[in-house]
Amino acid sequence: MKKLQLILVIFLFSFAIQAQEKKQNETIKIEINSNTKTIYVLGGIASVITKDDLAFAKKYNVRFHDFGCIAPENFEEYEVKNTLIFEYLNKNYGKQWQKEIKSTVLGFEKWVKKV
């Protein structure tokens, strides 16, 4: 009987995790499909967004969000969001933007290695 209860608990737990991941993925897709595309960067005490970044944002119709000196808890989620923006930029602007974006953007170097 205890084995059956354990199996049921494991099943319910995995179902809850899958539902949460699906909700996160849907939220990410909504963000990607919105008019405002956001690229997330880790900063510090001073902002890391430069004039070149602002020119990049204007040219490619994106915006940058600097977390400042407090990194987000769900770091990987923001890397995934950035990855989707990178795919969007490739699809809509070719590969030229890759030479213009700074390599310190969350997940960019990891994404470039996979492409």
Rank of each mutant, 00 (worst) to 15 (best):
I85K: 04
V62G: 11
D52Q: 01
E21S: 01
T36Y: 11
E31V: 08
K22V: 04
F67W: 13
V9C: 13
V62W: 07
A16K: 01
V9A: 15
T83D: 14
A57E: 00
L54Q: 03
Q18C: 12
K59R: 00
K23F: 06
Y88M: 05
T36M: 15
Q24D: 10
G68H: 02
E21I: 05
N82I: 02
A46V: 06
F86C: 03
D52R: 01
V80S: 13
V9R: 09
N35I: 09
N33A: 14
T38V: 11
N74Q: 11
F86K: 02
K81S: 11
L42A: 11
L12H: 15
E77M: 09
I10A: 14
I17D: 04
E73K: 05
T36P: 06
N90E: 06
F64S: 05
E79M: 10
L12D: 05
A16D: 10
N90S: 11
T83F: 12
A55V: 07
E31N: 15
T27L: 15
L89W: 01
N61R: 08
F56E: 02
S14R: 08
L54G: 09
A46C: 06
K51Y: 01
E79I: 02
Y60D: 09
A55G: 02
N33L: 11
Y60G: 08
K23Y: 00
K81V: 05
K37H: 11
I32T: 05
N35Y: 06
F56N: 05
Q18W: 08
I70H: 14
Q24A: 13
F75R: 05
E76S: 13
L89E: 05
F67D: 00
L8C: 09
L42D: 15
N25A: 04
K81N: 12
F15R: 11
K51L: 09
T36S: 14
F13W: 12
I49K: 03
P72Q: 11
K59W: 01
K29D: 08
F56C: 06
N82F: 04
N61W: 12
Y78L: 03
Y60K: 03
I70F: 14
F13G: 02
K22C: 12
A46H: 14
E26M: 08
L8Y: 13
I17H: 10
E26Y: 01
F11W: 13
A16G: 09
D52Y: 00
I49R: 04
D53G: 03
Y88R: 02
Q20H: 07
F13D: 11
Q18G: 09
D52K: 02
F11A: 08
F15W: 15
A55N: 11
I70A: 14
K37T: 00
N33E: 15
K23N: 04
L12G: 07
I49F: 10
